[in-house]
């Protein structure tokens, strides 16, 4: 169990007081599991809470009190005296509330919660926060119908047939057992067992052309996830373009001339890498391997020449 910076600090102490009071009495083990921290951290937090107190004005303190015998002999926490935080607690800060509201905005449409329930929860969070400027906002995502159908299939464990288009290949019909929807930077991905290829695959939702139910049985065991990387490429890019390629990077960017950096990226599929580099708008250059450089050159030449004869550009301003 790791312990984050957040869990070392008075946040845990404050929360622990409320938690123990609401629970009546809890074991150190239960509290550690509830907060996801080591038991030792809970013991330390308990000792700190009960070491502290409200100043009585005469240089001494009115202290929190617990059943110390139960704590020392049985690892049980049971509060007997609370000089503060009796019926009040620290509210969410405006930014904590914003983080919750922003997260809710991003995911709510993918859940089965009714929109009015979500709106009510948003209002409840706003009123549970202390006052402050509205410093975080996120746009509402329109949830594609396909995402809802896949969500239901995951829940019901039903196998779907999808028409899927892979870059550089035509549309293929695949039978999949979906296990998760990943919402990643505004893009939706479907994690699924591909029943024809007998492997776990990730599908981009916006490349799925059609979804149909099937009567196929849900697989008895899900295949292992395998990661196929065919090689790596070296790229020189502006810092902003390097940030766009960061998901594929296998090395930290190293400065080459003050304005540009060099980095290695994974090549999992040549067409996909060419697209990712081209989407940097000319701010990224493939340095090696030479074959990929040539492919990048061809990519640009083809695009400048027009994809096919019938697609003469028809200006319309």
């Amino acid at each position: 169990m790791s312990e984050s910076r957040i869990e070392r600090g008075i946040g845990l102490l404050l929360s622990l007081i409320q938690y123990v009071t609401a629970s009546g009495s809890v074991t150190v083990q239960e509290a550690a599991a509830h907060f996801g921290v080591p038991e030792q951290r809970i013991r330390e937090a308990v000792e700190r809470v009960f070491m502290a107190g409200v100043p009585d004005g005469a240089g001494d303190f009115i202290r929190f009190d617990i059943d110390f015998d139960a704590f020392e002999q049985q690892d049980v926490i049971s509060v007997t005296m609370r000089p503060a935080f009796e019926d009040e607690t620290v509210r969410l800060s405006p930014r904590e509330a914003s983080a919750l509201i922003a997260g809710l905005t991003l995911v709510a449409g993918y859940t089965e919660a009714a929109p009015e329930r979500v709106a009510a929860l948003r209002d409840k969070l706003r009123s549970a926060a202390s006052q402050g400027a509205d410093t975080v906002a996120v746009d509402t995502l329109a949830v594609p119908l396909a995402a809802q159908r896949i969500r239901d299939a995951i829940r019901d464990r039903s196998v779907l047939a999808i028409d899927y288009r892979k870059p550089g290949a035509g549309t293929q019909r695949r039978r999949i057992a979906p296990v998760a929807l990943n919402l990643n930077e505004g893009q939706v991905f479907v994690e699924a067992a591909d029943l024809d290829k007998q492997g776990m695959r990730t599908f981009r939702l916006d490349r799925i052309e059609a979804i149909e139910p099937t009567h196929d049985a849900w697989p008895y065991a899900l295949p292992e996830r395998e990661r196929t990387v065919t090689g790596s490429a070296q790229v020189v890019a502006t810092r902003a373009a390097a940030a766009m390629l960061r998901d594929y990077a296998t090395s930290e960017p190293v400065s080459v001339d003050g304005e540009r950096v060099r980095l290695d990226i994974e090549v999992w599929s040549e067409p996909a890498v060419l697209r990712a580099v081209a989407a940097c708008g000319g701010d990224a250059e493939i340095v090696a391997p030479a074959s990929l450089r040539r492919a990048m050159h061809r990519f640009a030449v083809d695009a400048l020449g027009g994809p096919s004869g019938e697609r003469e550009q028809t200006p319309r301003d």
Binding site: E7, L100, L183
Partner: peptide
């Protein structure tokens, strides 16, 4: 819903605030 909302930020720009918020919410057993 809140669990999911917090999960959005596990590795993201609002990780600290969502962890702090989670800690406050976990005062409720």
């Amino acid at each position: 819903l809140l669990d999911l909302a917090l999960r959005v930020w596990h590795e993201g720009g609002l990780t600290e605030e969502s962890q702090r918020a989670a800690l406050k919410l976990r005062a409720d057993p």
